[in-house]
Design a protein around this nucleic acid. Structure first.
Length: 184
DNA sequence: TTTGCGATTCGG
DNA sequence: CGAATCGCAAAG
């Protein structure tokens, strides 16, 4: 079993956490006990002063967990049919999160597909992702063949948003086939 | 009450 | 490129 990333890892500037998550893995333990590892290959940062962030403009029921302690999951429902998984960053009281857009696991390319494949919905919101006993947590990558540290990291504008498009807050592993879309 | 849109995906 | 599909907020 891999070591889970501790709370201090997430208690940092969101953009730094996003970049550093490339090379870590999302672990999913299903109800039957089976556990899978999905190396993260594409993420995006969302911050308090970011018009594209759900927490922009204050605390609301949907994004409440973003204002809580770092390291917790933030799951939201979008377009009437998809769920997306984030991990909360920044110290308590400061909203921030990293959207997990793709992982090196079959069917986990794209934020909506990742949640569908890993069977994640709103009931997985606000879980402590630093806790390896939880059904979802993030830890060091053990599948070296699929996601190695030292791989080339690409940076681009975020996908699918209409505000603050110019911010280069999307990070991805270059040449990884699971990255949801080619954008430089 | 009605309309429009959203951190998406899939089919034509 | 547009439909699918729904919670929420703004408009009428």
């Amino acid at each position: 079993m891999a070591l889970s990333l501790d709370r201090d890892f997430y208690d940092r500037p969101t953009v730094d956490v996003a970049r550093d998550l490339l090379g870590a893995s999302l672990y999913r333990r299903f109800a039957d006990g089976r556990t899978i590892e999905a190396p993260l290959v594409e993420v995006e940062a969302y911050t308090a002063d970011d018009p594209a962030c759900h927490a922009y403009g204050g605390i609301k029921p949907r994004c409440e967990v973003m204002f809580g302690p770092p390291g917790f999951s933030y799951v939201y429902f979008i377009y009437g049919m998809y769920h997306c998984l984030n991990v909360v960053t920044e110290r308590q009281g400061i909203p921030g999160a990293v959207l997990l857009r793709a992982a090196a696991y079959p069917g986990a390319n794209g934020p909506g597909r990742l949640c569908r494949t890993l069977e994640l919905d709103l009931s997985y919101n606000a879980l402590d992702m630093t806790d390896a006993t939880q059904p979802i947590f993030i830890g060091t990558t053990s599948l070296k063949c699929q996601s190695e540290r030292g791989e080339i990291i690409g940076i681009s504008e975020r996908i699918g948003i209409s505000k603050a498009k110019e911010r280069p807050w999307r990070f991805y592993v270059k040449d990884n086939p699971f990255v949801s879309r080619i954008k430089r």
